[in-house]
């Protein structure tokens, strides 16, 4: 079941990429997709029952614009620091805790953190993430977690857990 779901998804991406239904393209796509699912299918975390659940898809659709908004803010923030003559940075690596449990949710949280205001995920250990922060404020793990991960966790939990 897992492999069928992966196959459909990868083959869909292949079709979109080639944007052609010529027999040669489709056959090449089937061969490549089978090869990839066969070789790397085990690594990929994919549960068809979860991926095609409408509630999760709905939250995913909500998450994308919400996330992109913060990505744009992040960019303006970093751009401001970069072109400011005094280079107002106060960098450091802080630790935050997350209540998310599945690997997929943590991966998305880590990537979201990396793309948003001045933060870059350095490492993950169990439920702790180490974040490089371009402008550290706050005092302890709790404040840092709230400032960095707080805005994403509720939605990611609805999508992935």
């Amino acid at each position: 079941m897992k492999f069928i779901g992966e196959f459909i998804m990868l083959f869909g991406i292949w079709l979109l990429l080639t944007w052609s239904l010529a027999p040669a393209q489709v056959i090449a796509g089937v061969v490549v997709t089978l090869l990839v699912t066969g070789l790397a299918g085990d690594i990929f975390v994919f549960k068809a029952s979860r991926a095609f659940n409408p509630v999760r898809i709905f939250w995913m659709i909500v998450y994308i614009p919400y996330f992109l908004w913060y990505v744009v803010l992040a960019n303006l923030d970093v751009a401001y620091r970069v072109i400011h003559p005094d280079l107002p940075i106060r960098p450091g690596i802080v630790k935050i805790q997350t209540s998310l449990n599945t690997d997929m949710a943590k991966t998305f949280l880590a990537n979201s953190i990396t793309l948003t205001p001045g933060t870059l995920t350095v490492d993950i250990k169990e439920n702790e993430l180490y974040i490089h922060w371009i402008y550290v404020h706050g005092k302890d793990v709790k404040e840092w977690s709230e400032a960095i991960a707080g805005r994403f966790e509720p939605i990611l939990r609805r999508i992935f857990e």
């Binding site: 960019n75 970093v78 970069v82 072109i83 793309l115 870059l120 350095v122 490089h132």
Partner: peptide, 23 residues
């Protein structure tokens, strides 16, 4: 790219490289 040149260390430069360049 300006950030890549101006910021001081590897980690800060990665910040500029990932955020601005990705978007």
């Amino acid at each position: 790219c300006i950030g890549l040149v101006r910021l001081p260390d590897v980690y800060n430069r990665l910040q500029a490289a990932t955020k601005c360049v990705t978007l």
